[in-house]
Structures are given as C-alpha cells and as structure tokens.
C-alpha cells in the first residue's frame, strides 16, 4: 500500500465527508423534529447546484472570482432556503396530522417534481461550471504527490464553520432552544407558547440552506452535474445522518466524515465500481444492527 495514495484518499474522503455532513444536517434536523425523511432533500441540493451555475454564468467574467463566489454563496443559499420553506408549506404542512406514510409519499412526489422541473427547464444533459479558483497545495509524500485544491480546502473550512454556526445557534440562542423544545415534545412546546409550525418551517429552511452551502461548494469542486445527482447524494447523506445517529447535529457531521472517509478508502483500495454498493450496504447494515447510530438516542416504541 503506497502511503501517498492512502493520504490522498484520506484527504478526498475528508472533502467528500464534509459535504455529506452538510447535507445530512437537513435530514437529521427534519427527522428529529417531525420524524419524517425529507425525501426531496437531495433534490434541493441538486437545485442549488443549478442555481450556482446560473448565478456564476449570469455574473460572467465581469467580476473578480472572489466577488463572484461571495455573491453566488449569498444568492444561492438564500434562494434555496426559500425553496425549502415553500416545499414544506405546500407539500408537508397540510399533512401534519395524516398517517406517517402520507408525508413520505408526498416527499417522493416533490422529489419527482423537482427533478423533472429542472429537466424540462434546463435540459437533461450534463452541465458544467468554469473553474473559479485554480491551483492548490501539493506535498511530496513517500515517493508520490498528494494534492489538494484550494476549493477543497475551502470545502473543509466552510463546512466546519457552517456546522459550528448552526450548532451554536441550536445550543445557545432562543430560537435554538425553541427548536430543541419542539423536537423533544411538540405538544408541550406548543402549550408553552412556542409556535411549532413556525419552528418546523425554520428547520426546513435551515436544512435547505445547509444543503445549498454543500451545493455551491461541490459544484465548484467537481464542476459538472446533472438533474439526477440529488438521488444518490441524498441517500448517502441520509446514510451519514443515520450513521451518526439521526436527530443529532454533531452526529451528522461525524457520520458524514466517517462515510466520506470509508467510501473513498473503499474506492481507492478495493473497487471503485462498487463504491455506491458499499455505501448502501453500510446504510442497510447500520439500520439493521444499530438504528440509533453513534450519537443518537435509542427509539422506544410507544403505544
């Protein structure tokens, strides 16, 4: 085993895992608060990738890359957050009191709508964005070169910052306290004067915003995407959420990093064709043997 390949795969895994962690936040928070898998979350991420490309193309070469990056970040995160809010309001809010299958099926419907809408408006072909920030760091390690681009460095830093900000918000602010209260007991929280409908809307919005952060970063990193990327990425991010313990914010990040690292090691040293099979098998195994994940609370079945 060459040490430089190992280190390169670890670096790749870290980058991949950070983005999984960001998307996993949306799953974990929504599941924590209303106990539902937001199936359309992966597609929200896909939409944010398209919005990134649109904003960058509209800005064109008229502004410097740094300005373009900041504008893209602000616009895309804002627009995608509104997306998350609207979807919750249209497709999930009317179903608050229906049986558990109903919102899940509705979410699958939303996922199909988003994919097809993008396909109709933007075409089915692969899209690409120009390289905004070229170059990166390189080291010589044990007879080989390990490289990491500036964008990848940015992914690791920005995702940690975003996670830190979110964790601070949830654990320190009044809004975060309301979120936690709603998660623990929605009825009691409502009695105590928390507008739970508003909190749920905020959670969806926050989740979408975090997915948008990942969307901007990944689009800049890979440079190419199509309308169907949301599905696989969504399932993997959900795997990350389950791995870390669904409902737990730090769990989402740890799960994301673990999944990213193990996936890139698997594809580097075992078989890259079967890396998705590996991720899905991991998901199935974790759900079967340790459904509460690493940091989650075990679920007790109540009558």
């Amino acid at each position: 085993m060459d040490s430089h390949i190992l280190i390169q795969q670890l670096a790749n895994g870290l980058v991949l895992g950070s983005t999984y962690g960001l998307i996993a936040v949306g799953y974990t928070m929504v599941y924590g608060i209303i106990g539902m898998i937001n199936f359309a979350h992966g597609d929200i991420y896909m939409v944010s990738a398209y919005l990134t490309a649109l904003v960058l193309a509209l800005l064109g070469a008229s502004v410097s890359p740094v300005v373009a990056l900041i504008v893209a970040f602000v616009l895309v995160v804002g627009l995608t957050a509104v997306f998350g809010f609207s979807i919750e309001r249209i497709a999930y809010k009317p179903l608050r009191k229906s049986p558990r299958l109903a919102p899940l099926i509705s979410a699958i419907g939303v996922s199909l709508i988003l994919q097809n809408y993008v396909q109709i408006t933007q075409g089915a072909r692969n899209q690409a964005v120009p390289t905004l920030i070229p170059g990166g760091l390189e080291w010589n390690v044990g007879g080989g070169v390990v490289g990491i681009t500036w964008v990848q460095v940015m992914i690791i830093i920005v995702s940690q910052l975003a996670m830190g900000a979110l964790t601070w918000m949830i654990s320190r602010t009044a809004l975060g306290r309301a979120c936690r209260a709603t998660e623990q007991d929605p009825k009691m929280a409502a009695i105590l004067g928390i507008n739970t409908d508003r909190i749920i809307a905020i959670v969806f919005t926050l989740g979408a915003a975090m997915a948008a952060v990942a969307g901007v970063l990944v689009t800049l990193n890979y440079g190419s995407f199509d309308f169907s990327i949301g599905f696989v990425t969504g399932i993997k991010a959900f795997t990350a959420a389950v791995l870390g313990g669904i409902g737990s914010l730090p769990g989402a990040m740890i799960g994301g990093l673990l999944l990213g690292l193990s996936e890139s090691l698997f594809s580097g040293f075992v078989n890259s064709d079967y890396k998705d099979v590996f991720a899905f098998s991991l998901l199935v195994l974790v759900l079967i043997f340790k459904p509460s994940g690493l940091l989650g609370r075990p679920q007790v079945e109540k009558v």
Binding site: I90, I105, G109, S111, L112, I113, I120
Partner: peptide, 10 residues
C-alpha cells in the same frame, strides 16, 4: 409525464 406523476402524488 414525471412532473404530472409527482404533482398527482402530492
């Protein structure tokens, strides 16, 4: 087609 499926599911 898929758009209509999705909308009708919701």
């Amino acid at each position: 087609r898929i758009l209509i499926f999705g909308i009708s599911m919701v």
